[in-house]
Design a protein around this nucleic acid. Structure first.
Length: 499
RNA sequence: GUCUCCUUCGUCUAGUGGUUAGGACACCGGGUUUUCAUCCCGGCAACAGGGGUUCGACUCCCCUAGGAGAUGCCA
């Protein structure tokens, strides 16, 4: 039998790490089995639905390169794949349940329900609906309806017995029926179905064979099995995935840091790094291998290697993965990646000039190993494109040196910056070494003031490469400017000394 | 409160009765080096606790503890 799985997000917020992890597992499972991956939009919560979330869903999946075989936009034999377009269907199936005595109308107001819950909480009694309307007669229902009271449809959960499902990962999960949420709502008063009804009806109609979803759904599993039984259908196979947690062990959420994929994207994470890392929380291949391309995972993924225990999302490790993937890219690829960030941060012009392009192309070899995120590029390369705003004089002066010494060192270095480009890096290094010996300072003590003068910072890409990219003409101007500043400072100091 | 699930280094994990319990990130040291970074080498560090079963338990069973999730006209 062909494997058919689905990712069924609800467009009520931005796609987050947890959701994407579920999508990935489903996608990889389908691909590894030569089956179908279906996307279904569960937009039955009209209050929280947002167009932006829906857009984000599509963009995120596209960015990650997860394409669905059936689903919205694309279509398929079991559509529509957007639940709000299937409303009539759910009503029809809910009515069937009522006719069969497996569900009932409930007229309780949300005020009553809220009050009920509060009382239960205070009395520390078992929470849940008190089945107030469970035994309303047909006449009662008709009367209420004719009086204009709105109703919901609830599932009649059996009072006795137990319900179980055999989870592919967890084994048999059994619940006594009396422990199941008492009579969950299937059809809301606005006519839209709840998740329970919609997912069961759709999964059955769409011939879904396996349900891979997060473990937070385990408690609902029994409800769903009860629904399948009520309809006389065979439930699909379940596999409840371990949850993704924050550092404190709680369900990953915004307070742990960025959780929406779009945030990672903006920050300059590469999709391949995110895919690789996210898949590794909860799944492993063997005792050593941890780098996988999407294509490899499409072949290698297997349910057997999924871990049962929840996993903590480690931002540090993702960062490391990202650096690794950045360094695996070719210079040409990096150039393409980096340009949007440079434009966005105003480092280069919107219509990149020839000169800018030349620098970008030549700088990547210096930049690549210094990037953890693509967005790091702007701060790192700013000095190549723009003048330096302010110098921190303190940074220019090496340890154990004063203004005079630094000026002397810079003036010596300046001599070598002239004609710098016509010599090789090796030649230049040799010259700088000799020169520093002459001036009787360590090479580092000569290069640091030069570095600050040229880049404006104590931290920069290698100085020779930077000089070459910047051009000696500009470099000389910056050096002269710094020497000037130092001289002014020296003068002030002398005047203060005289007083 | 009740129910369900989970439990190997700080974190992600390998391990399926006999291993010096392996790897990766992080961290700490060292090396390369013109800063930073990269890279290389080394180190620290774990089977939650208690009972069984067994010649032998990280591995199987039970209990306890801890953690998490659910308990919505949200998914």
């Amino acid at each position: 039998m062909e494997v058919r799985v689905r990712y069924a997000p609800s467009p009520t917020g931005l796609q987050h790490i947890g959701g994407v992890r579920t999508a990935l597992f489903n996608y990889f499972f389908a691909r590894s089995k030569g089956g179908k991956f279906i996307l279904r939009v569960e937009d039955t919560d009209r209050e929280r639905f947002s167009e932006e979330s829906l857009k984000d869903l599509y963009e995120t999946l596209e960015w990650l390169g997860i394409d669905w075989d059936e689903g919205p936009i694309k279509g398929g034999a079991y559509g529509p794949y957007v639940q709000s377009e299937r409303s009539a269907l759910y009503r029809e199936y809910a009515d069937k349940l009522i006719a069969a005595g497996k569900a009932y109308h409930c007229f309780c107001t949300s005020e009553r329900l809220t009050e009920l819950r509060e009382v239960q909480k205070i009395e520390k009694k078992n929470y849940g609906y008190d089945r107030h309307c469970r035994n309303l007669s047909t006449e009662d229902v008709e009367k209420k309806k004719s009086e204009g009271f709105s109703s919901v449809i609830r599932l009649k959960v059996p009072l006795e017995g137990e319900t179980f499902f055999d989870d592919l990962l967890l084994g048999r999960v059994t619940r006594k029926n009396r422990d199941i949420s008492p009579d969950p709502v299937l059809l809301k008063s606005d006519g839209f179905p709840t998740y329970h009804l919609a997912n069961v009806v759709d999964d059955h109609l769409m011939k879904i064979t396996h349900i891979l979803r997060a473990q937070e759904w385990i408690p609902s599993g029994a409800i769903h099995v009860l629904l399948y039984k009520a309809f006389g259908w065979e439930p699909p196979l379940y596999c409840h995935l371990p949850m993704v947690m924050g550092k404190d062990g709680q369900k990953l959420s915004k307070r742990h840091g960025s959780t929406s994929v779009i945030d990672f994207r903006k920050r300059g994470y590469l999709p391949e790094a995110l895919i690789n890392y996210v898949t590794m929380v909860g799944w492993s291949y063997d005792d050593s291998r941890e780098f996988f391309t999407k294509e490899e995972l499409e072949k290698l993924f297997s349910l057997e290697k999924i871990n049962k225990a929840p996993g903590v999302f480690d931002y540090k490790k993702l960062e490391w993965f990202n650096g690794q993937y950045i360094r695996r890219k070719s210079e040409a690829e990096l150039v393409d990646e980096v340009i949007p960030y440079l434009k966005k941060d105003g480092i280069v012009s919107e219509n990149i000039t020839e000169r800018e392009m030349l620098i970008i192309k030549n700088m990547m070899t210096l930049m690549a190993e210094r990037l953890h995120f693509m967005s790091d590029i702007s701060e790192l390369s700013r000095f190549l494109f723009h003048d330096i705003g302010e110098y921190t004089l303190k940074d220019i002066i090496p340890k154990k040196m004063d203004y005079e010494g630094t000026i002397r060192v810079l003036e010596s270095a300046r001599e070598l910056v002239e004609g710098f480009e016509s010599r090789s890096d090796e030649e230049n290094e040799e010259l700088f070494r000799k020169k520093s010996e002459e001036v009787k300072v360590k090479l580092g003590s000569m290069l640091m003031p030069l570095r600050v003068a040229i880049s404006g910072s104590k931290v920069s890409p290698p100085i020779f490469g930077s000089l070459r990219l910047l051009g000696s003409e500009k470099a000389l101007k910056r050096i002269d400017h710094v020497i000037e500043l130092l001289k002014e400072e020296l003068k002030k100091e002398e005047e203060n000394g005289k007083q």
